[in-house]
């Protein structure tokens, strides 16, 4: 044997390096070799009885080196998401604003039919599937979600006076922010799915997400409410004092708190709906809406107190649950 003779197996190794490096076992290499037209003749040239034993030698000699596959991260579509959120804000804000305007202008007898009309409009807007890739429950779930949102918004707008109405419209408009935040949470979860090594690691990465999102959403809702009150104060008669001071004090403390509770209920409910836990989300919304209605109508609570009690307790249940669900990798599949 001369030293110049080339090892035929080495030649094959070079030719089929990628499939050998990525193979999960020797049979996969055998299948790849046969697909490349190698048969018993070639195996005999490499001093093997058949393709299978040749593949075993290749499997043993080539170290595994799988491709560092690029993790399929969907493109960051924050512009698209923002645009969608804006549209959603307008879609939800319009019926609420129409209702608030009608309540201020129309005689009391027309308020009932108007509330029903605008509530239906709002429910329809909220129940419409948004065409996103996220799951959002069955038709029944979506209908329940729309009804819950409408109930929760219509109540403060009709009964809360001018300030309550403005805050209610602000919450309805902030549904756009809810959409945006939910999309952001899903994006973050999707990113961490590819980056986290274990499920515990994933949970650890995800735990600050919902608190941060809630704080942001709270800020957005309060900001919208403040803007509305500023407008209301600017156009109306003013007893004196700074514009900002007057605007903030147009709404009472319980009214602000009620609005915050409602905002903190809408966010986890929507998140849960998008994470495949539609039933608890819808149940929470509907329960809070019904409780608010009952407390206002039957138990004669002040509307803002009723809202604070109903939404606050529902949010206290849904927020921790949503936080737990977001920590589970299974909730982020698409």
């Amino acid at each position: 044997m001369t030293g110049r003779e080339v090892d035929p197996v080495r030649e094959l190794m070079e030719r089929h390096r990628t499939s050998c490096e990525q193979a999960v076992d020797a049979l996969e290499i055998a299948a790849a070799l046969e697909d490349a037209g190698l048969g018993p003749a070639e195996a005999a040239r490499c001093r093997h009885a058949d393709v299978f034993s040749l593949a075993e030698e290749l499997y043993a000699r080539v170290p595994r080196r799988p491709p560092t596959a690029p993790v399929p991260v969907p493109p960051v579509r924050w512009q698209q998401r923002s645009w969608q959120a804006l549209r959603s804000a307008v879609r939800h804000g319009l019926p609420a604003a129409a209702l608030a305007g009608g309540v201020a202008v129309l005689p009391p007898v027309a308020r009932g039919p108007l509330a029903v009309l605008c509530g239906g409009w709002l429910a329809w807007a909220a129940a419409r599937p948004d065409g996103a890739s996220a799951p959002d429950g069955t038709v029944l779930h979506r209908a329940g979600y729309g009804a819950g949102v409408a109930l929760l918004v219509v109540l403060p707008v009709t009964t809360g006076g001018p300030a309550g109405a403005v805050l209610g419209v602000a919450v309805a408009t902030a549904v756009g922010a809810v959409e945006w935040t939910t999309g952001w949470l899903r994006q973050v979860g999707w990113g961490h799915l590819g980056a986290a090594r274990t499920m515990a690691d994933f949970r650890a990465r995800m735990w600050p997400a919902l608190p941060v999102a809630s704080a942001l959403h709270l800020l957005a809702t309060a900001g919208l409410g403040l803007t509305g009150l500023l407008l209301l104060t600017a156009v109306g008669p003013r007893p004196g004092g700074g514009l900002l001071y007057e605007a903030v004090h147009r709404a009472t403390g319980p009214q602000w708190a009620g609005q915050a509770a409602l905002a903190l209920l809408l966010l986890p409910a929507t998140v849960l709906l998008r994470c495949g836990r539609a039933t608890p989300a819808v149940a929470g919304l509907l329960a809070a809406g019904t409780a608010g209605l009952l407390l206002t109508a039957a138990a004669r609570y002040r509307p803002e107190t009723a809202q604070l009690l109903a939404c606050g307790s529902a949010a206290a249940l849904l927020l921790p649950y949503a936080w737990l669900v977001l920590g589970r990798p299974g909730a982020h599949r698409r």
Partner: peptide, 12 residues
């Protein structure tokens, strides 16, 4: 798992 440990996404 010579050629790579599973990640969370792989488990799902």
């Amino acid at each position: 798992t010579a050629a790579g440990q599973p990640q969370v996404r792989d488990v799902l």
